[in-house]
C-alpha cells in the first residue's frame, strides 16, 4: 500500500515537474536504515530506468530487488572497502546482468523474512522428529501398548505434518488460505489444532472409561454382597421381607444387562 502510494506520489510529482528525464539521473542515499526517507530501498523505488544511485560509506540494506533489475540501475559505492550492500531478499537481483554494482562490496544475504519457505534445516528436523514419532507409535503397537485406532490417529496427524514440512509450497498456499503471513506460524496453528482435538478426544475417552469403571465397581459391590448373602456371611436383610429373600417374588424385575449395550 505504501509502495503504491509512493509510486502514485512520484507519478504526480514527475508529471507536475513536467520532466521526463531524457538521460540517466543520479540519486543519493543518505540513510542506512532498511525503510524510510533516504534509504537505498526508497532510492531504488524512486529511480527511473537507467539511473545511478550513489551510496556513501557504510552498510546499506538492499530492498526492492525487483525494481532494481527492472530499471537496470547502477549502484555506485564510495569504494569496495567503505560501502557494503547487504541484500535482504536473497541477493539474486545483484547478480542480474542488467544491474551494475561498482565500488561496493556485496555482503552475504541477510536472513530472509519474506520468503515463503522453511529453511531446509528446519525441514530436516521436522522430518526426523515425525519419523521418530512414527517409529515410536509403531513400536508401541507392536508391543500392544497402544490400540491400533489411536495409533492410526497419531500416524495420520504425523503424516499430515510431515507432508506440510516437506511440501513447503503447500504450506504457503495453506498459510494464504488461512490469512497467515508466516507459513511457519500456519504449521504451528495447524499442529496446535490437531493436538487440541486429540486432547478433547481423550477427555471424552476418559469420561467414558470412568463411567465404565464406575459401573464395574457398582457391579463388583453388588456381586460381593450377593455372594456374602449366599454364603450366609451376612443376614439376608432386615426381618421377613429382607431384600435378598425376595429375589424370586413378583416384585423381582428382570435384571437388565448392566454393562455394554
Amino acid at each position: 500500500m505504501r509502495r503504491l502510494l509512493t509510486i502514485a506520489l512520484l507519478l504526480v510529482v514527475a508529471s507536475a515537474a513536467g520532466a521526463t528525464p531524457a538521460s540517466a539521473a543520479t540519486i543519493e542515499v543518505t540513510s542506512t536504515e532498511e525503510a524510510g526517507e533516504g534509504t537505498l530501498g526508497l532510492a531504488i523505488l524512486e529511480a527511473e530506468f537507467g539511473d545511478t544511485i550513489e551510496i556513501p560509506p557504510g552498510e546499506y540494506p538492499l530492498t526492492n530487488g525487483d525494481d532494481l533489475t527492472a530499471k537496470a540501475l547502477t549502484l555506485r559505492g564510495a569504494g569496495a572497502e567503505q560501502t557494503t550492500i547487504v541484500p535482504t531478499g536473497g541477493g539474486a537481483a545483484l547478480d542480474d546482468p542488467d544491474v551494475t554494482v561498482v565500488d561496493a562490496t556485496i555482503a552475504d544475504p541477510r536472513q530472509d523474512d519474506d520468503d515463503s519457505s522453511i529453511e531446509t534445516k528446519a525441514q530436516i528436523v521436522a522430518l526426523v522428529a515425525t519419523l521418530a514419532i512414527f517409529l515410536l507409535v509403531l513400536d508401541l503397537v507392536r508391543r500392544r501398548r497402544l490400540a491400533e485406532r489411536y495409533a492410526l490417529l497419531w500416524m495420520l496427524a504425523g503424516v499430515a505434518l510431515l507432508a506440510l514440512a516437506i511440501w513447503t509450497d503447500g504450506l504457503g498456499v495453506l498459510a494464504d488460505l488461512m490469512g497467515i503471513q508466516e507459513p511457519a506460524n500456519a504449521i504451528f496453528i495447524l499442529a496446535f489444532g490437531v493436538v487440541s482435538v486429540l486432547l478433547l478426544h481423550f477427555s471424552v475417552a476418559i469420561t467414558r472409561l470412568s463411567e465404565e469403571t464406575k459401573i464395574l465397581a457398582q457391579e463388583s459391590a453388588r456381586l460381593e454382597h450377593e455372594l456374602r448373602v449366599e454364603r450366609g456371611e451376612t443376614p439376608a436383610g432386615d426381618g421377613a421381607s429382607g431384600p435378598a429373600g425376595t429375589e424370586d417374588d413378583q416384585h423381582q424385575r428382570p435384571v437388565r444387562p448392566q454393562s455394554g449395550e
Binding site: 457398582q218 459391590a221 453388588r222 454382597h225 451376612t234 431384600p243 435378598a244 425376595t246 416384585h251
Partner: peptide, 25 residues
C-alpha cells in the same frame, strides 16, 4: 445390608449403587 465399593466412587456413584439395589430388589 452393605454394598462395598472396591474404591471411592463419590457420593453420586454411591447413591446410584443404592438405587440399583432398590430397583433390583
Amino acid at each position: 445390608q452393605v454394598l462395598r465399593h472396591p474404591y471411592n466412587l463419590g457420593i453420586g456413584g454411591a447413591m446410584q449403587s443404592g438405587y440399583k439395589y432398590a430397583l433390583r430388589n
